[in-house]
Design a protein around this nucleic acid. Sequence first.
RNA 1: GGUCCGGUAGCUCAGCUGGAUAGAGCAACAGCCUUCUAAGCUGUGGGUCUCGGGUUCGAAUCCCGACCGGAUCACCA
Length: 595
Amino acid sequence: MTLENIVTQLTKDAVKALYNIDCTDAQVQLQKTRAEFEGNITLVVFPFVKMARKAPQMVAAEVGEWMATNAAHLVAKYNAVQGFLNLSIADSFWIEQLQAIDAEAEYGKQPDRNQLMMVEYSSPNTNKPLHLGHVRNNLLGYSVAKIQEANGWNVVKTNIVNDRGIHICKSMLAWLKFGNGETPETSGKKGDHLIGDYYVRFDVEYKKQVKELMEAGKDEETAKREAPLMQEAQAMLRKWEANDPEVRALWEKMNEWVYAGFDETYQRMGVSFDKIYYESTTYLEGKSEVEKGLAAGEFYRREDGSVWANLEKDGLDEKLLLRSDGTSVYMTQDIGTAKLRYQDYPINKMVYVVGNEQEYHFKVLSILLDRLGFPFGKELVHFSYGMVELPNGKMKSREGTVVDADDLMDKMVSDAKEISKDKVNTLQGITEEEANEIARKVGLGALKYFILKVDPRKNMLFNPAESIDFNGNTGPFIQYTYARIKSVLRKAESLESLKTLETLKTIEEKELALIQRLCDYPATVRAAGDEFSPAILCNYAYALACDFNSFYHDLSILNEPDAHKRALRLLLAKNVAKVLNAAMALLGIEMPERM
RNA sequence: GGUCCGGUAGCUCAGCUGGAUAGAGCAACAGCCUUCUAAGCUGUGGGUCUCGGGUUCGAAUCCCGACCGGAUCACCA
């Protein structure tokens, strides 16, 4: 039973007894007492003022007095300021709370729902390496999956790889023409970077051709269409669709290079998938699903042979599902993917982690899946996150204004390594290998926290010229707090018996604040799940770390002469470490034992 | 033009189911290591919460209207 629940009930009893008011839980407004007033939890009495027909100050005072009298074991003191009743909760209550938290190994984990949630994230194209935009996607997707797991869902993490289409053919063609048989082995390049380089190369050569054609008198549109490279790429796509063995073999070889590169990046980023789907296999399913919808009268065919859905009664437009030549579009593929997924898993809730630029697409997909009879269609969640912007605007692959994921991680880890060199006294005696492992955790922790702490729905700015901080409201700050606690716990010979706590009746203000913060953790996990917001957990972890650092600064743990107090502080430190670790795990951030 | 999202300190962001004097970090300045890890702690300065109306005991928060920025409305994905 949480303090909020207890005080809510107490309030209802009080206003019933004093004013004969029957109030609902929603009318009981509780908040943390502001620092400038004495107390731990504050009841806002304004909602009762009218019915009680008394001044706010009076109501607050009367309710406070009633509580202090009828629940003296809980409400130690109170003060009424205008319409705010500030309650000081008994120290014994907080000590009990701490012991209860300590007893729970998975504190914060919500009960199982026995419901399956599938979370799709990442969704890379196979023609270029991952960049900062993907990093935000991956970190959000992974974290949301962890958060929903903590909220009792069975979660299946999935990835849909866009491995077909004209863009892949561009890389393949450029490699054939200009590659001289270069491979990841011969060049030493990661496979995804190698392919990405040829994608860029295609664009360079293509632009040359367009320019030449335009100089020869063609208008831009014609030039773009008639450039030989584009013609060849399109021919290659047709061959691919026709299962031409040579094209398919090349495609498979190059895909393998890319996947090996992606795997390396994913692993480094610390994200993973339970099941991977490929558009090259799902797009055909989509076609047949559309044909079924056509037969059922949900869709219609135009004279030119193209197939459409009419969404006017949903307030939207008409939407193309199959081109006049019978080939599929993006939407068709997503329908096919949904079908396969539904065959593979008993999905109760489907979550798509995809940028906010695709809101319209998912609105339409939801309607179409629903019409096609997928139970998860109507309720699908498009977890729509904002773009990562650079100081001069959006990232564009072809213009070379992308921040590469691998480079960024390298930079973060090497920065962390550099900073740790000043820490010779705390990190002395560790091996080079351990030092590198710490730098890896800290560098990635800084990056992940930097990205996850901002509200996912909002666009965020990344300035490559300014390095990501390791001080202040950052991942390393929280990791550092954890490492500090671990250091203390290592020095404490053993956690002293909890029994000594039973004789402890009073606690310090900073201890109380910490326990109160720990008590907030389960509600924070729920909120992060309800809102699909890792940022909420970041804010919580930061606040907890701040509270601990303040406590640590003011009060000694190991040097405290009173054994009872020492035991309490050790227990407190241990549980702060536990909760920090748990919260950061839900963000996909690893904690170093020392740093 | 329609729809959606955003506008809070010099910068990056919290706060938004209405509550007390709007918070952090960075940057700037001033302090704190013979005491459990200074990636820490303490302090100073910095605000017309874009603007204008409305709702009410009370508005950064809710409603309406402007202005500014972004996204989207493809036989691209």
